[in-house]
């Protein structure tokens, strides 16, 4: 019993320290954006675009394939479970499942798997190889040069990935409905259109923003914690993935709950 309490205490202490670090990093980024003195905007813009290319553009095939398949599977299950009733509800089901929930969640998983791990590894390696120190010695703030472009690039990529997933997920669902029951795509799309509200769009975009920001900052923080030994690197990456997954699921639940309560 005592051990369990102590374990929970340690977890709580670690979590609050992590929340503090996330807060401080966000504060540093916001301060930098509000007062970009000493910031080489052209260079930061170029690095941000590189991050968008890696995190967003290169993830499009994976997002497209998973969105189409998940959209199709969602309709397959709905049609087989609800039989005739389903046809009227297909629009709402696609919006509810794809736009509100699965789109942002799967995009976040892809972002964590492809970019979060890469970022934690890269920043951890920079710490180990003295690259971080060299930047500081030449008065290049690592927050400007390393963190800001990566966070901005990942948030922008997450937005694009979620929009891409939502659109292709709905199209995949429509395609499956056409294949299984011969329902015309125009009819289905009009049902999706009438089911889609501003609140749905706000929720999916809010989740994209919050998840992208969370995954980027947590990956950076775990990478920055590496110092001294190369064996710390894989542990930092594993911890970054776990923290990102838990953080995304918790925030997803909170945003969804807030959406229904409000």
């Amino acid at each position: 019993m005592q051990e369990s309490v102590m374990y929970l205490g340690r977890v709580a202490a670690r979590s609050s320290a992590l929340v503090g670090q996330v807060y401080r990093l966000h504060a540093a980024l916001i301060t930098k954006l509000r007062s970009p003195r000493g910031l080489n905007i052209e260079l930061v813009r170029r690095l941000t675009l590189n991050q968008v290319l890696f995190s967003g553009v290169q993830a499009v095939p994976l997002i497209a394939a998973s969105a189409t398949l998940i959209g199709g599977v969602a309709i397959m299950q709905t049609v087989s479970l609800l039989s005739g009733l389903a046809y009227e509800l297909i629009g709402q089901i696609l919006v509810g499942i794809i736009v509100r929930e699965i789109g942002p969640l799967i995009a976040a998983v892809v972002l964590i798997g492809r970019s979060g791990t890469a970022m934690a590894t890269e920043i951890g390696s920079m710490r180990l190889n003295g690259e971080w120190d060299a930047l500081k010695a030449y008065r290049i703030d690592p927050v400007d040069f390393v963190i800001l472009p990566r966070v901005a690039g990942m948030v922008a990529s997450m937005f694009c990935m979620v929009v891409c997933f939502d659109v292709l997920g709905i199209l995949g669902g429509c395609g499956m409905a056409l294949l299984m029951k011969g329902i015309s795509s125009a009819q289905l799309l009009s049902r999706v259109g009438s089911a889609l509200t501003n609140a749905d769009l706000a929720v999916t975009l809010l989740k994209a923003l919050v998840f992208g920001e969370l995954v980027a900052t947590l990956s950076c923080i775990y990478g920055m914690r590496v110092h001294g030994s190369p064996t710390e690197l894989p542990r930092a990456v594993t911890r970054a993935v776990v923290a990102c997954m838990v953080g995304v699921l918790v925030l997803d639940s909170l945003i969804t709950a807030a959406f229904y309560i409000l």
Binding site: S125, M126, N129, G130, E131, D133, A134, A137, R139
Partner: peptide
Amino acid sequence: CLAPVGYVPREGGMLS
């Protein structure tokens, strides 16, 4: 002076 120190570390120190 924007870069007041020319730092030459023994190991690393360059962006890989």
